[in-house]
């Protein structure tokens, strides 16, 4: 069976972001970019299913400017078989991304789509669910365990009170949580091999999906900074401050 893994290029998670002075957005010039951590986990899971003999092909797809090919190559180096780049300079909402992916799903006919639960830039946590809705598939969000058997996928999900396990008819959409697996590092020989793997480029607007968004960002601002606190010398002083100064206990 074929697995489709949508991946996103985002700011590296260790970078402390800076808001632009004109409040138009976050400054991304000369900032280190990387594969979204949840997408890395999604690629790893797909590659493991291939190594286990469950999957036959892993296809990765990314939407964005030419630079996203860097992240597609990373995914190929991690073990994906081929890549698809839907090129656009526009900043898309989850809904447009999901609509484009629904077209890719129609072309590729994967049995399973695995994607990250959220991108660490927009923090939306929407694309997987929207893709599942548009394709009519079942969804296993926030997955910490994925098992395939008898034409179904069993997904253990991280929910607020603990864990929940559901069974979904294939094809299905799974979104990854942090604890699904520990992604491998790409080895140098695999990085070299990844350069020879197929990477198709298509224009994102060739699918007939309207790429304009109904949501306008009016401004992006810096969060209120906290007042610098004080250091106390002892537990007694701490308890005293909490009782009499902060009055929280």
């Amino acid at each position: 069976m074929k697995i489709l893994v949508p991946v996103k290029r985002v700011i590296d998670y260790n970078v402390k972001v800076r808001v632009k002075a004109d409040q138009s957005g976050v400054d991304l010039a000369n900032v280190k970019m990387a594969l979204n951590p949840f997408c890395e986990i999604a690629v790893e899971e797909a590659v493991r299913l291939k190594e286990a003999g469950v999957a036959t092909e892993v296809v990765v797809v990314s939407i964005g400017p030419a630079a996203v090919q860097e992240q597609l190559r990373t995914a190929l180096a991690l073990g994906a078989d081929r890549a698809l780049h839907l090129e656009t300079e526009l900043n898309l909402d989850s809904l447009q991304v999901a609509k484009l992916l629904a077209n890719v799903v129609a072309d590729e006919q994967p049995s399973l789509v695995i994607l990250g639960k959220q991108a660490i830039d927009s923090d939306n946590n929407q694309t997987g669910q929207m893709l599942a809705a548009l394709t009519g598939m079942g969804q296993g969000t926030f997955a910490s365990k994925v098992a395939l058997a008898d034409g179904k996928v069993q997904v253990t999900r991280e929910i607020d009170g603990g864990l929940q396990t559901v069974a979904l008819t294939l094809p299905a959409v799974v979104s990854t949580d942090l604890r699904l697996n520990e992604p491998r590092y790409a080895s140098l020989p695999n990085i070299m091999k990844a350069k020879k793997k197929p990477l198709d480029v298509k224009a994102a607007d060739s699918y007939g999906v309207s790429l304009s968004s109904n949501v306008k960002v009016l401004k992006v601002s810096t969060p209120a900074t906290r007042q610098g606190g004080i250091k106390v010398e002892s537990v007694a002083e701490l308890v005293d401050k909490l009782k009499h100064e902060a009055k929280v206990i």
């Binding site: 809904l95 946590n125 669910q129 809705a133």
Partner: peptide, 23 residues
Amino acid sequence: ATTTGKNFLPRVAAMLDVAQISD
């Protein structure tokens, strides 16, 4: 914006063909 809300609401938004504003 709990795991329950985050799970079903984007699905609703896509079915209604509208964006979702999260969190």
